[in-house]
Amino acid sequence: MVSISNPYKPNIAALRKITTENDVNDIKTFEVVFEDPDLARSFRYTPGQFGMISYFGAGECPIGIASSPTDEGFLEFTIKKVGTVTTALHNCSEGDRIGIRGPYGNGWPIEAMEGRNVVLVGGGFAFTTLRSLAKYILHDDNRGRFGDLTVIYGARNPGELIYKYDLEDWEQRDDINLIVTVDKGDSGWTGKEGYIPTILKEAAPSSKNAIAAICGPPIMIRFSIPVMTELGFSPSDILLSLEMRMKCGIGKCGRCNVGSKFVCLDGPVFTHEELQGLPKEY
């Protein structure tokens, strides 16, 4: 009998650093390192892929990889506390051990983005894998292979903006056009105010030789797509990442399908054109 490897077996990893991202303190970024040094060195992934994260005793859940493949030796996951597993993870301390399976899913289509202007539109904490992609593009080894980079990112209020350290860093660079907005500012806020679709319209990134990736709450996506279309982006040049409930991550537990596509295998990234060909069940 041929022996096959167990796809349900996670690799053990240690939480090296835990960073609180927002004022409400329900979003944290976990920097993790595989216990097996060979795996820590050899683990490869594409921005937009995800891992199945275990807190043993609480269970497993899918989380997008927030670090960039250019970050060597560690991974990052930015996690919002919503239920059993995410709460258990939030209760962890640095040094605690978790399990990771993956990387799963298709990720952002890097090759299709090369040589083109890239527009990233993110709202709320769903910004995680766009952050991975932005960091990847901005890395010295890769920057030359992409055209202009525009990042439009928004949160409900200034306290909810995540990755403030990256945003500050990106502000200083001249090879990225960063636009940050909040739905509603506070007394100290000097930046933009307004919902993403409005800001997007105002910023009007050119669709010429451009490809866009959008991540955020369903309502933001729903109102952003018509704006993108108006700007001239064709359905095949608008990328979206779907979030479904997932248990296995490998196309077996049967719960993440949209029509005959499994979001965990065939997605989570789809073009708007692909989604138009699928049942509206996401």
Binding site: Y8, F56, G57, E60, K247, C248, K252, C253, G254, R255
Partner: peptide, 24 residues
């Protein structure tokens, strides 16, 4: 029908990861 769920159960020495039937 092969859909399943995966859950963890604590034991005296650790955790058992169990898969069980689920349904759409």
């Amino acid at each position: 029908c092969w859909c399943f769920d995966i859950i963890d159960e604590e034991t005296s020495t650790g955790v058992e990861r169990i898969r069980l039937w689920d349904t759409c």
